[in-house]
């Protein structure tokens, strides 16, 4: 569905992604992990076309995304920090997003109902709390029933009730066969929601396989210690690194 073919990206002198290869398949859900500054956000932004790679190409449904914007109709994106024009109302924001996708007429209003956003329709976005803004971002990402969902720290800043609602929605979409990419530092959420782990370290793919095989490889039964072990290995720059990449 999405294939990232040997992209390189430099910001100034800093090489953020080097010869980066990954494939994401429809019907699977991926946890994208890695320490701060490892290139997770750059990867996501490259897929969305916000960051333009220096070399290499990204294919979505077999088509290069370079100079293309129609492919973004397939993607629902929930940013890490959703900041919106202060004087725009929630209703206007939703109308605008709908106007940008004139072909799609059927909307997925599950989250709008569950988060009770309908009653806030006339509130200016500038007056919303961080959590409510996050709810708006989530509702927008799911609104068009996209085949691909990219969620950047989706549960950060949400209250426990909202977190459960969002998780239930994500699980529902996974069951419906969507492709889902999630980055998060909350490992419990990732274990619950995803079946595939991608660990990025210093701009390279360090691990890319199912969570099950991650556990087997690290000899751990639980997810968090397995990830911790993976992090230790990556820091030691274990020469066996390359053997870890199965896919």
């Amino acid at each position: 569905m999405i294939s990232v073919n040997s992209i390189c990206k430099k910001f100034g002198k800093l090489q953020v992604l080097r010869d980066f290869n990954l494939r994401f398949e429809l019907g699977k859900s991926y946890a994208i992990m890695g320490p701060n500054g490892s290139g997770k956000t750059t990867l996501i932004k490259s897929i969305l076309g916000m960051v333009l790679p220096d070399s290499g190409e990204i294919l979505v449904k077999g088509q290069s995304i370079k100079g293309n914007n129609a492919y973004r109709e397939l993607i629902g994106y929930m940013p890490q920090i959703g900041r919106y024009p202060a004087n725009m109302r929630i209703g206007q924001l939703f109308d605008m997003m709908k106007d940008m996708r004139p072909k799609i007429r059927e909307y997925d209003l599950d989250l709008v109902t569950d988060f009770e956003l309908e009653s806030l329709k006339d509130k200016p976005l500038g007056t919303l709390s961080g959590g409510t803004r996050q709810k708006v971002s989530a509702a927008l990402a799911f609104l068009f029933n996209p085949e691909i969902l990219i969620l950047d720290e989706p549960t950060a800043g949400l209250d426990p009730i909202a977190v459960e609602i969002l998780k239930a929605k994500i699980k529902k979409e996974i069951a419906a066969g969507k492709l889902i990419l999630i980055t998060s530092h909350i490992l419990n959420d990732l274990e619950e929601l995803t079946n595939h782990a991608v660990y990025i370290f210093e701009g390279e793919v360090f691990f890319d396989d199912t969570i099950q095989s991650l556990k087997e490889m690290t000899d751990e039964e639980r997810f968090s210690p397995a990830i911790a072990k993976l992090m230790q290995w990556s820091l030691k720059k274990n020469p066996k690194n390359k053997d870890l990449i199965h896919a």
């Binding site: 914007n69 492919y71 973004r72 959703g82 900041r83």
Partner: peptide, 16 residues
């Protein structure tokens, strides 16, 4: 001030 919002719009199916 609108940079984050501009980013969000860039993730939508519209031209830069």
């Amino acid at each position: 001030n609108n940079l984050e919002f501009i980013e969000l719009m860039l993730a939508q199916p519209v031209k830069r």
